[in-house]
């Protein structure tokens, strides 16, 4: 496995995205509409707990929608072609890195619109954004692997959601905790352990995806 292969594959994903454009625009419209629906139903939110929970629910569903597409574009012929060219480890790393970047963009845009419509209660923005980036990485790892499992099982979005919800919950709970600390503007020392746990989950998910994906890929 070469790093050149990974960068080639990431470039391929970006090119596909750039040529089709429907995927990213579709997701953006999806999250923006969700935020708007929430805005119309809540008007404004004063309770930090509600604000935080609603934001993460929107983010989770957006993330699942974004990542569920990662293996749908692969037709059988193209998958076979890629299989002859690249090692499965390179494939999964490239997909995870690409999904991380995509999720970061989608999540930050969600945050922008969420703050714009519903208003921001965040006191520590740098911690909040750091938390979003770290959890985007972990979410992308978990969701890319489950998307691979669901696509190999030949089932659609429902299976993907069932498989990924319980597995994402540990990291989601940690992310919610850090996010709540950032909203309340607590000192960094209150969140540092949780951030470490988030990094730890990232490492575990990455290693597992790297080791398990070859077995998934082999037909």
């Amino acid at each position: 496995m070469k790093t050149k292969h990974i960068s080639e594959l990431i470039k391929k994903e970006f090119l596909l995205e750039f040529r089709q454009k429907t995927a990213l625009n579709g997701i953006l419209l999806y999250v923006i509409s969700t935020v708007f629906v929430c805005y119309l139903s809540f008007k404004n939110i004063v309770n930090p707990v509600t604000w935080n929970a609603l934001f993460w629910v929107i983010l989770l569903f957006g993330a699942i929608n974004t990542s569920s597409k990662s293996f749908l574009q692969e037709t059988k012929g193209r998958a076979l072609y890629n299989f002859t060219l690249y090692k499965p480890q390179a494939m999964i790393l490239a997909k995870i890195i690409y999904n991380t970047l995509l999720l970061c963009v989608v999540n930050l845009i969600t945050l922008l619109f969420y703050c714009w419509f519903i208003g921001s209660l965040v006191q520590d923005f740098s911690l909040f954004i750091l938390n979003i980036v770290l959890s985007s990485m972990a979410l992308s790892g978990v969701l890319t692997l489950t998307a691979g499992i669901a696509s190999k099982a030949g089932s659609g979005f429902t299976l993907m959601a069932i498989l990924s919800f319980p597995v994402t919950l540990p990291l989601l709970l940690v992310a919610l905790k850090v996010s709540k600390n950032a909203v309340d503007g607590l000192a960094m020392s209150a969140s540092s352990t949780y951030l470490l746990v988030l990094v730890f989950i990232n490492v575990i998910v990455g290693v597992l995806a790297f080791l398990l994906f070859p077995y998934l890929w082999r037909e």
């Binding site: 489950t146 499992i149 597995v167 989950i201 575990i204 998910v205 597992l208 398990l212 077995y215």
Partner: peptide, 16 residues
């Protein structure tokens, strides 16, 4: 094969 992959992944996350 596929359920084995999910089982291992989910077990480790559960232990975490």
């Amino acid at each position: 094969r596929i359920s084995a992959v999910y089982n291992i992944f989910a077990f480790v996350m559960m232990i975490v």
